[in-house]
Write a protein that binds this DNA or RNA. Structure first.
Lengths: 251, 251
DNA sequence: TTCGTTGTCAAACACTGTTCGTTCATGGAA
DNA sequence: TTCCATGAACGAACAGTGTTTGACAACGAA
């Protein structure tokens, strides 16, 4: 028999790259998340991930169905960092606030995947834990089930929308080449100037309130909006509680 | 002198297409909006617009700086359809509700540009009228200026985020090839099934409340969230009003 | 050993937004 | 009238995108 070891490989053969771990979904997700964090959403392409893994983009499709699925996986990975407190009925509103702050913080840090739950009900294991926790907090606090369920949906929408908005501004900032503080000062400085030059007879409310319109940073605005939502939920909860009280105990 | 009319054009010449109106920004915006309405956001490319106008995509850049600017222009065009009531201090909350419903309706109809105000402060003439109107309604109702200003920002974020979410679902529906009702029944049917199969010991709140979690359509959820925000704003307005009352008149 | 399945991966497809360079058309100044 | 400057028009090209296809490699089961 021949000695096959000394024969040259035929030229139609494509040698596999060696000395490298086989690809896996976890590897792809982890690499995607790293690129996202370091370079931003606009840099997160299948080609960029493949490059980082020393392969071609087509190889990724053996492990993830498409880019959208990859984003969902990344989102669920990120959701694992969110802290949701154990429900305490006496403090449910404050706990809801804390939970939303945690979501906000974690998503902001990896902000650029905040678009994912806008187009998909989050169903990964970590995401479900977050939803479960939020719902449990409200229910423990006496929020009626239908209100709690819709409250979950709306609060989640609000938080992710706020973070997503922030990420869009971040994309613009990166594209500008300016550092964040400079970009913000520039962009909002121009808006402020523009507002101050509007005709006061046609825009009396805007021109008369420029300072408050331009006041507050992103975190303050987030907190304010969250406060509105929670006050609204509280009003429903106290309506429900009052309904359960005997007449003589209603204030 | 020669008769120039009978000489053939040299081959390096590019004849302009004739019998056609010169391009203008308005034409491009109107065409973009039509494509958006008829074919959706994913069909709205510079090439698609150029094709519809019988030219090449490069020609559009003499009239709009880039696609983002085009989207802003389209957004402002759309904003012109929004109805904002004249402020009536006694009914400010209801008026705010009506105004937001109008925004919601109009943007939903052209829903796919709802992403635009997420990454840009709306500064087109129509958009400014909307902002002015919302702010004026809250101020007329006694909402403190800082609260009204942030309220404007947050309410606007909420409405556009809700519409944008809807548009992302619409993109998925179109890609599925299914009619809207079928897509919704399919997608949410699968979510419901998935929820009902979750382990009840780990997800007691979700598994115990599937009906309410899946209940309500997009419009109901929108209304509910808007209600929360407005209740929150009302609580601030009544705090401010109570602060202005003599002690003997506080209830 | 053979066969079937799955993973890998280059090449290609079908698009995207935008730039570049050239030509055309128009208006204003000399 | 001629010339020049400017802006509009527009093909070709650039630099990307997500994804599919077909071929080959590797592995596990029979």
């Amino acid at each position: 028999m021949f000695d096959m070891d000394t024969m040259p490989a035929p030229p139609w053969r494509t040698p596999r790259k060696t000395g490298r771990q086989p690809l896996s979904q976890d590897m792809i997700v982890a690499t995607g998340l790293r690129i996202l964090d370091e370079e931003g959403l606009e840099a997160l392409s299948m080609r960029r991930i493949a490059q980082e893994l020393g392969t071609g983009p087509a190889s990724l499709y053996a492990h993830v169905a498409n880019k959208e699925e990859l984003l969902e996986l990344i989102f669920d990975q990120v959701s694992g960092e969110i802290d949701i407190p154990e429900p305490d009925p006496a403090r449910w509103a404050e706990q809801l606030r804390e939970a939303c702050r945690s979501i906000y913080r974690v998503l902001t840090e990896h902000g650029d995947v905040a678009r994912v739950p806008l187009s998909n009900i989050p169903t990964g294991p970590n995401s479900l834990k977050v939803s479960e926790g939020l719902l449990a907090i409200m229910l423990a606090g006496g929020v009626p089930p239908q209100i709690a369920a819709w409250g979950l949906d709306r609060v989640y929408l609000y938080v992710t929308a706020d973070v997503y908005e922030g990420s869009l501004y971040t994309v613009k900032q990166r594209a500008s080449g300016l550092p964040p503080e400079e970009f913000v000062a520039d962009y909002f400085g121009q808006i402020r100037q523009y507002f101050s030059r509007l005709p006061p007879d046609r825009f009396p409310a805007i021109t008369g309130n420029i300072d408050v319109l331009m006041g507050g940073d992103g975190d303050q605005r987030f907190e304010f909006g969250l406060d509105l939502l929670i006050r609204g939920l509280e009003s429903y909860a106290s309506e429900a509680t009052n309904r359960d009280m005997p007449d003589s105990q209603r204030s």
